[in-house]
Computed example of a mutant assay.
Amino acid sequence: MENEKVSILIVEDDMIIAANLSIQLTSLGYEVAGILPRGEEAIMHVREHSPQLLLMDINLKGALSGIDTAKAIKKYIDIPIIYLTANSDDATFDKAKETHPKAFITKPFNKLSLQRTIALVVEEMKEGNNSNQNTQHIEILEDRIFVRHNGRMEKLLLEDILYIEADRNYCILITPKIKHILTCTLKVMEEKLPKSSFIRVHRSFIINISKLDVLGDGHLEIGRKVIPIGKSHKELLLNRIQTI
């Protein structure tokens, strides 16, 4: 994980501080994903774009504090958070700890402390990726999947997935326009995908049941792809089709 590939979202309602942060982060080689003053906007941004790191002011103006915002975000996706705070009291610190932040930066901060703190967090993120290098980071929300690709999280709507095919320790995710090769097992995908839309029909295939074109005795077809139906999966598939 190189610095230039790390996307950082700034959530800060003081625009002078936010602009200063943006300039310094850019000069250090990081990508600034955006500057947002409100927690509600940050939640929407993360769900849509999934940056890799958050710089979050604890005392945001508006309905949500930085801590409230972090709690809401972590319900959907686990993103490392560094808090910015002018408060060093124990009560604020203890409340913030509940969201498991990676670090705190106390205002007013200087470039050196910012640089060192973020560098340490990025290194920890890198070590975490290396320790789990055989399993690709995948996040699935209500209607979309985020897949880590070239250091970024790419969005794909679940309704666009036709089927998923296993290839040893990889999964090939097929859409009408493109295929994605994921470094995870089919079992991991089966556990993550919503069972209302996806069903395993063979030891090597999961299908989007809404994309089913043809159902034969021992096979089915989706987009002209012939997919075998495993004997142990056939009854469940037939039951699901009857309930559609």
Score class of each variant (00 low, 15 high):
Asn20Thr: 13
Val147Ile: 15
Leu215Asn: 07
Leu238His: 05
Leu212Ile: 05
Ile174Arg: 09
Arg203Thr: 03
Ile81Lys: 04
Glu98Asp: 09
Ser204Tyr: 03
Ile206Ala: 10
Met44Gln: 09
Lys234Ala: 12
Arg47Lys: 13
Leu54Gly: 06
Ser210Val: 02
Ala119Trp: 02
Thr26Asn: 12
Gly223Cys: 13
Asp68Tyr: 13
Glu190Phe: 10
Glu12Cys: 01
Ile43Gln: 01
Leu158Cys: 08
Tyr83Thr: 09
Met153His: 07
Phe146Arg: 04
Ser131Pro: 00
Asn59Ser: 13
Met15Asp: 13
Leu156Lys: 11
Leu182His: 14
Asp90Phe: 02
Lys61Thr: 11
Ser27Thr: 12
Glu123Cys: 05
Glu12Ser: 08
Lys71Thr: 00
Asn3Val: 03
Asn208Pro: 05
Lys95Ala: 14
Leu162Phe: 12
Glu12Phe: 05
Pro228Leu: 11
Phe109Thr: 00
Asp57Asn: 04
Asp213Val: 14
Leu55His: 00
Ile229Pro: 10
Leu215Ala: 07
Ile58Ala: 03
Leu162Ile: 04
Ser204Gln: 05
Ile145Phe: 12
Lys211Asn: 08
Leu162Arg: 11
Asn169Asp: 11
Ile207Trp: 02
Ser204Val: 03
Leu156His: 14
Lys225Thr: 11
Glu221Trp: 02
Ile164Glu: 05
Cys171Met: 05
Ala119Pro: 06
Thr26Gln: 13
Ile35Ser: 06
Asn59His: 11
Arg224Met: 08
Ala70Val: 10
Tyr170Phe: 13
Asp78Ala: 10
Ala86Tyr: 05
Asp160Gly: 09
Val122Phe: 04
Pro80Asn: 02
Ile222Glu: 05
Gln242Ala: 15
Met1Ala: 09
